[in-house]
């Protein structure tokens, strides 16, 4: 199953890259996507706890606009702090508990943290996130756990 899905995704990717529809190139596209999915179909669709599913993909797409808005806010905040002559930054390191079940969820949360207001993920393990924050407000908003709740929603109920 994962073989077929990977091959399909790869073939779509090939068409997008190539844009040529001569016989030889389409044939080599089919062959290449089969070859790639033979070599690494267990990587993209994932075994065990980095599993991508259709429902998760849709929930992830619904999460993106909120993330994008947060990124814009983050950058405006950062521009202010960078260009202010006194540089109003109060860096510190905070830790908070990791409630997520899947590796993919942790990755999404960690990269979202890195992209949003004044925070950078330093370390992720099963128990906790260690995060470097630039200001007091961003530390507070992270501890309140809104982002984690949203990512948990992407993960869904089942624990794969």
């Amino acid at each position: 199953m994962s073989f077929v899905i990977t091959a399909l995704i790869m073939f779509i990717f090939w068409i997008l890259l190539s844009g040529e529809f001569s016989f030889i190139l389409i044939l080599s596209g089919v062959f290449s996507s089969l070859l790639v999915s033979y070599m690494s179909h267990d990587l993209l669709i994932g075994e065990g706890n980095i599993k991508l599913g259709i429902k998760r993909t849709f929930r992830f797409i619904r999460y993106l606009p909120w993330l994008f808005w947060q990124i814009v806010m983050a950058n405006l905040d950062l521009v202010y702090r960078t260009l202010h002559p006194k540089m109003p930054i109060h860096p510190k390191i905070i830790k908070f508990k990791n409630d997520l079940n899947t590796d993919l969820g942790m990755v999404i949360l960690a990269n979202s943290i890195t992209l949003t207001p004044g925070t950078i993920t330093i370390e992720v393990n099963e128990n906790e996130f260690i995060v470097h924050t630039l200001s007091e407000e961003s530390a507070q908003s992270l501890i309140s756990g809104e982002m984690q709740a949203r990512v948990k929603k992407i993960e869904g109920k089942y624990n794969v």
């Binding site: 990124i71 950062l78 890195t114 950078i120 470097h132």
Partner: peptide
Amino acid sequence: YSRMHPAGKSDTL
């Protein structure tokens, strides 16, 4: 660590 903040965010945006 604080230099990572502009690196990770502003560059991406």
